[in-house]
Amino acid sequence: MNDSLPSSVLVTGSTTWDNLPSMRRILAALPAGSRIVTGDTPGADACAVAIAAELGLEVTRMKKNRADQRAFPGEAWRGLNQRMLASGVDLVLAFHADYGKPGCARGTVHMVEHAQACDTEVRIFRE
Rank of each mutant, 00 (worst) to 15 (best):
M1K: 08
N2L: 08
N2H: 07
N2Y: 03
D3W: 08
S4H: 09
S4P: 00
L5S: 14
P6E: 00
P6M: 06
S7C: 14
S7V: 06
S7L: 14
S8M: 12
V9P: 01
V9Q: 07
L10I: 11
T12H: 02
G13H: 06
G13A: 09
G13Q: 05
S14L: 04
S14K: 03
T16Y: 03
T16S: 12
W17C: 08
W17P: 06
L20Q: 04
L20Y: 11
S22Q: 13
S22W: 00
M23W: 00
M23G: 12
L27E: 00
L27M: 13
A28P: 04
L30D: 03
A32N: 09
G33N: 10
G33H: 01
G33C: 04
G33L: 05
R35N: 00
R35K: 15
R35I: 06
I36F: 01
V37A: 05
T41I: 01
P42E: 05
P42K: 10
A44Y: 04
D45S: 03
D45H: 07
D45G: 05
A46W: 02
C47A: 15
C47D: 07
A48F: 10
V49I: 14
A50W: 01
A50Q: 13
I51G: 05
A52V: 04
A53L: 07
A53Y: 08
G56Y: 02
L57V: 08
V59W: 08
V59H: 04
V59A: 05
T60F: 02
R61K: 14
R61C: 15
M62V: 11
K64Q: 14
R66E: 14
A67Y: 06
A67Q: 15
R70L: 14
R70T: 12
R70V: 13
R70F: 12
A71T: 08
P73F: 11
G74C: 11
G74H: 00
G74P: 00
E75R: 15
E75N: 15
A76M: 01
A76H: 09
G79E: 10
Q82H: 12
R83T: 09
A86V: 08
G88R: 01
V89K: 07
D90G: 14
L91E: 03
F95S: 03
F95Y: 13
H96G: 14
D98F: 00
D98T: 10
Y99S: 11
K101L: 15
G103V: 05
G103R: 11
C104G: 03
A105Q: 08
A105S: 15
T108P: 10
V109F: 07
H110G: 12
M111I: 13
E113D: 13
A115G: 11
A115H: 07
A117Q: 14
C118S: 14
C118K: 13
E121T: 15
E121F: 06
V122S: 03
I124T: 08
F125W: 09
F125R: 03
